[in-house]
């Protein structure tokens, strides 16, 4: 099995496309870093003396608004309540919201790069089975003394390893850019989590790692889907197109459906944003972390089963 993964890894890194992907991520992170640095407010930290007053006014405003908008959607009310709770917590525990923009802030902002990295992981996942068919090399691959199941598993593991590499590169490189451009703060303020009306403090580094892992779940599920389509239809364009479309539109479509139908909570994309359980409010009332994890596991099993079933049965005739 180790040899099979090694083979896949070599095939992946013998192609220029793979390096272009990594290069693009590094380029984009550098670019974003420079833009943020150049737009940064030179007199940062102004108004930090009377931040408690400002927060208090904000709280009052929000509370007033809450009374006015009785008929607003639940999500809006929840988000107002969240702001109020966090601001109150800050005043009580003397935690100024005016932190100098530092490496942590940048790594936090840069976490959106995961969507971009996800794009590349989907491309790799979509190609890893389909290209063997396109190249005709599938014939030589499947006449080795190795079961088809093992070959497919090795390919999937390679996709996961590639996703992991992209994440590590994103995290490590954005930390590096952050340190160089924005420096490290003397004291790192903890991150405040709001969930179900309670607030918890969390170490910033730990929070960022959790943020990155949870944000990559979406990428992982889409890559698994692309992998499945690739194995079932032997067509990488279809796999890439469908997966990327769903990556950008899936969330919105689900949110629209969620307003009308209760069953929308069983849609994959209602459950990929696990951050909603840590900061923010669930898409549909009554959804819990455990529920989402269950749904994700079920989707994962379905995707894997389809990929393996079809790949095992397939007659390689072309």
């Amino acid at each position: 099995m180790l040899n099979l993964i090694k083979n896949e890894w070599i095939k992946l890194f013998k192609r220029t496309g793979t390096f272009v992907m990594i290069g693009l991520i590094i380029l984009l992170l550098t670019f974003v870093g420079i833009i943020i640095r150049s737009q940064e407010n030179p007199d940062r930290g102004t108004g930090s003396e009377n931040w408690e007053e400002q927060l208090q006014t904000e709280i009052n405003n929000r509370e007033q608004e809450l009374k006015d908008i009785q008929n607003a959607p639940q999500s809006m009310i929840d988000s107002y309540q969240r702001d109020i709770a966090i601001n109150k917590y800050r005043i009580e525990h003397n935690l100024s919201p005016h932190q100098d923009y530092s490496v942590w802030g940048f790594v936090y902002d840069a976490s959106n790069i995961i969507q971009f990295a996800g794009l590349f992981v989907i491309i790799v996942a979509a190609g890893i089975v389909a290209s063997e068919f396109n190249w005709g090399t599938i014939k030589l691959l499947l006449i080795r003394p190795i079961s088809r199941g093992k070959i497919l598993v090795a390919k999937y593991i390679t996709v996961i390893l590639f996703a992991l590499l992209m994440l590590i590169i994103s995290f490590a490189y954005s930390s590096l850019v952050g340190v160089i451009l924005f420096g490290t703060p003397e004291t790192t303020a903890p991150h405040l989590n709001y969930y179900n009306g309670t607030i918890t403090e969390q170490n910033m580094g730990v929070h960022l790692i959790i943020l990155y892992s949870l944000k990559s779940i979406n990428m992982l599920m889409l890559a698994t889907m692309a992998f499945m389509i690739s194995a079932v239809f032997r067509n990488s364009s279809l796999a890439i197109g469908l997966s990327i479309f769903l990556m950008f539109a899936g969330g919105q479509l689900t949110a629209m459906l969620a307003q009308k139908f209760e069953w929308a909570k069983y849609i994959l994309f209602a459950n990929t944003e696990l951050m909603q359980y840590i900061e923010g409010v669930p898409l549909i009332e009554g959804m819990t972390l455990a529920f989402s994890v269950m749904v994700l596991v079920v989707y994962f099993i379905i995707f894997q089963f389809l990929a393996h079933y079809v790949f095992h049965k397939r007659d390689v005739a072309a």
Partner: peptide, 22 residues
Amino acid sequence: VENPEMYKFMSGYQNLMQFARM
């Protein structure tokens, strides 16, 4: 089986090593 299609982006030796590992 039919044409001997190989990984074109690799050398002949690297291709053979792929199959040797299997």
